[in-house]
């Protein structure tokens, strides 16, 4: 898969602005199909995570983004054409908008599975929405359903530090801080693992990377 000509430039710019220091702790970049999941505090999150992957892996990795935010105008053009983002409807958000029927979560999972095919990886923010950076919120169920449908799927946690300080929720101008991205060891859904146990285990695996 050939990547968009702007992709390399945007990746370089994202690394420069965020000053990101990438570390792989007890893990290493692996071209196999993977879901990278991370904490979510800033609009820069997926760009920084995506640009921190080695180019070969990056070209076959697609971010999962919220349809309600990325659907319009230039945002959509960048998200879809450059990053080949997978836009999915957020359940909660749709319920807030009156008269809009709740999105079917299965539809979003189908959409992600389609986008992955046999050789593509995903970037996913299982908290569903951006937090303040102090706490990692409870994970939404999407990650679990995805693994249930694709049982041997590798999951790699990546903790993003300081991106909430560069571009916090509600701000539009970034301030430079040095950020850090820590990838941890890959994990899988265990056979017969109940949903809450799995989601808590995945969240723990992510939070453990915070202060390493």
């Amino acid at each position: 898969m050939k990547s968009h000509p702007l992709a390399g430039i945007i990746a370089g710019a994202a690394r420069l602005i965020s000053g990101v220091k990438v570390r792989w702790v007890d893990s290493e970049p692996d071209p196999r199909q993977t879901v990278y999941f991370a904490n979510h505090t800033s609009h820069l999150d997926f760009v920084v995570l995506w640009s921190s992957l080695p180019p070969g892996i990056r070209a076959r990795t697609r971010p999962v983004a919220a349809q309600d935010y990325w659907e319009k105008g230039i945002r959509r053009a960048i998200a879809v054409n450059v990053f080949r983002a997978v836009l999915v409807a957020r359940q909660q958000k749709n319920q807030e908008i009156q008269g809009t029927p709740a999105a079917d979560p299965r539809e979003a999972i189908d959409h992600m599975l389609d986008a992955m095919g046999n050789d593509h990886s995903l970037i996913l923010f299982p908290e569903g929405t951006r937090g303040t950076g102090e706490e990692v919120a409870a994970f939404k169920s999407g990650l679990y359903y995805l693994c249930q449908r694709k049982p041997d799927l590798r999951l790699v946690p990546g903790y993003l530090n300081n991106l909430n300080r560069i571009l916090p929720k509600g701000e539009f101008l970034p301030v430079p801080f040095i950020s850090r991205l820590t990838f941890g060891p890959a994990m899988c859904l265990a056979p017969d693992e109940p949903k809450p146990v799995f989601l808590a285990r995945a969240r723990d695996a992510l939070c453990r990377l915070r202060n390493i």
Binding site: G19, N162, R165, V175, P176, F177, I178
Partner: peptide
């Protein structure tokens, strides 16, 4: 760059 390192 120094200010960025400092505030971080």
């Amino acid at each position: 760059l120094a200010l960025r390192e400092y505030v971080t």
